[in-house]
Nucleic acid binder design. Structure first.
Lengths: 346, 346
DNA sequence: TTGTAGGCGTTATCAT
DNA sequence: ATGATAACGCCTACAA
């Protein structure tokens, strides 16, 4: 066991270890990095000394020397949304396989937090940055890549393909959801979610409208109920407002911009004494675990969350290490998972 | 705007900036760290050059020189449990105020992942480590502190006070929950949650039993239904089993080790066609946002999650910077938030 | 006001 | 098999 270092004593360096073990620093370094070059006796002695002194490699020094770190970073849009923690899990799995560590940051949807994280990460010389950005079109992101840190956009695409991105076809997701509702015979539906500054929201409602039009339904039979954020609380409030209408005006189905909002709407519906799906059907988006686990399990548009993360990690590593790297826009297809919130008990 | 560095070109250093701006490296460094010492003209020129070249400070080099980093780390037990992301938010708030950045790691309840994270963080020379450990009594944690990196245990206490810790009185939380149920007249209750290797679970059930005894209820009228993990899925399965019993044997109330489990039990109850709380009342633990947002809002034992994080961050910073630091065991008091899952609609 | 130089801890090269 | 040493990028005395 290591002796407690006297108060105020700094962590020993390989120099200290070398002195204590009566060898040169080069030998200590060799024990660490190419032990086969060191005689077993010396190696033993050095290793014991390291344990004894409580030696811990200094990563900054290694990194300074190496010029590069063994770290990836993911800047999440909202750490409290399980969707993003699942994406993070996928990234971590891929990083693990390559013995890279993962730095998780949370921008909380605020551009200022995002940019301060980004600045730090660049200074840290992380191998690559994965980000679900507040604004996918931001010029700052390209600037970072230009300055030498690979950047991959997660769960969004950029109009011009100057960065890698991994996303899911949100228009298609919107279509799937609404086609399902049309098939079930719904003729008055609502889309709940916002703000429209979020690209995902725009795409999902666009897809929804496209499906609605394609079925020759009147545009005004699909109303948009905006929210300030994609949270359960906002969903509950919007749902309460929406469902307070008379049953003749009230939509018979609600498609929500994400599952958090859908859970809120579900709550509002049950509190208003409505039966789901008989009085109102609900479709969510993301298929987070809470969706299947809701009181009335939610029909939801599934995105391959973990796969999204894994792919993004692979791309950023490729960009960091492969000189022949070409930017790619990977787009996954979503699929619809139908559950009781639209089908009822079958 | 920065010019695109020729492929394979490294990020410019202050040396490059100095050369380009025709000044010495000392001056460039001064522009960065003590701009008031530099004449406005030179400063301008240097700053323009930096922007031009796309200069980014090298944090490893700074840190190597400084001997310390500006980073805190939090090793979470389960990033997909909103409780821990809320704790993380508290830590981040405190870190922000001190201009420290926060490194989030996820052990996913696995000791091996936890220790590899810890090794990395030590090598990184983070200022301090906050951790909700797999095993709060682990000797490894004290060892890290002994080697010079302050460690604060979050949401757990250690038997011997050789580390700072910030926790919530879980026995008391268990008592509060069960006292509430007793007051409502419940005479047969269940505790759902596990494994018992998790200290929080042990304490909560201990508190529950203490309250039960204190009310002179027979011990066998409080059954423990163990789960493998504290997840919605496990809660659903346990709830289904438990509630399938005849109404004469079935408990009239269920106290769950955390809200995820409680949401699962709630789901199982509703799927079994039971009314909550009339047929079965449910109490959760943590009061995560999803608890209030559940189809039947959950009564839950509230923990000051964000405050927990803030306090832990302050302690670790104190330990890192204040020579007169004394280890502290901060214990918050939980309180009970009553909602429809025990009270019904009032 | 600006320049020079030493050193932080590590690794790799080159000697011995 | 082991030792000496330069270099990574930055910061800060100290010198000019």
């Amino acid at each position: 066991m290591a002796r407690r270092p006297a108060a105020g004593t700094r962590i020993p360096s390989i120099k200290d270890v070398a002195a204590a073990a009566q060898v040169s620093v080069g030998t200590v370094s060799n024990v660490l990095n190419r032990p086969e070059l060191v005689s077993p006796a010396t190696r033993d002695r050095v290793e014991r000394t390291m344990a004894d002194l409580g030696f811990v490699r200094n990563e900054s020094a290694r990194q300074l020397r190496a010029g590069t770190s063994r770290t990836l970073a993911y800047v999440m849009l909202d750490a409290s949304n399980p969707f993003f923690t699942d994406v993070a899990r996928g990234i971590e799995e891929a990083a693990d396989e390559l013995d890279l560590s993962l730095f998780l940051c949370n921008s909380n949807s605020r551009a200022s937090r995002e940019s301060s994280h980004l600045a730090r990460l660049q200074q840290q010389r992380v191998q690559g940055i994965l980000i679900t950005p507040v604004d996918a079109e931001s010029e700052g992101l390209a600037e970072i890549a230009r300055r030498g840190t690979p950047v991959v956009v997660v769960d969004r695409t950029r109009r011009d393909a100057d960065l890698c991105s991994v996303s899911v076809d949100d228009r298609r997701g919107g279509r799937l959801a609404v086609e399902h509702l049309i098939e079930l015979g719904h003729r008055r539906i609502a889309f709940v979610g916002g703000p429209l500054s979020i690209g995902q929201v725009r795409d999902r409602i666009d897809g929804a409208r496209a499906a609605w039009r394609a079925a020759n339904r009147p545009a005004d039979a699909l109303v948009h109920v905006p929210t300030d954020a994609l949270t359960v609380a906002d969903g509950t409030a919007a749902g309460a407002r929406l469902l307070a209408q008379s049953s003749r005006r009230r939509p018979t189905a609600v498609f929500c911009a994400n599952d958090l909002v859908a859970l809120g709407v579900l709550r509002a519906a049950l509190q208003a004494g409505l039966r789901v799906p008989d009085d109102v059907a609900i479709v969510g988006y993301d298929d987070i675990d809470f969706a299947a686990a809701a009181a009335i399990p939610l029909t939801s548009v599934r995105q391959p969350r973990v796969e999204l993360g894994r792919t993004a990690a692979r791309l950023v590593i490729d960009e960091a290490t492969n000189v022949a790297h070409e930017h790619q826009q990977v787009v996954f297809e979503p699929d619809l998972v139908t559950r009781a919130s639209t089908l009822g008990v079958r």
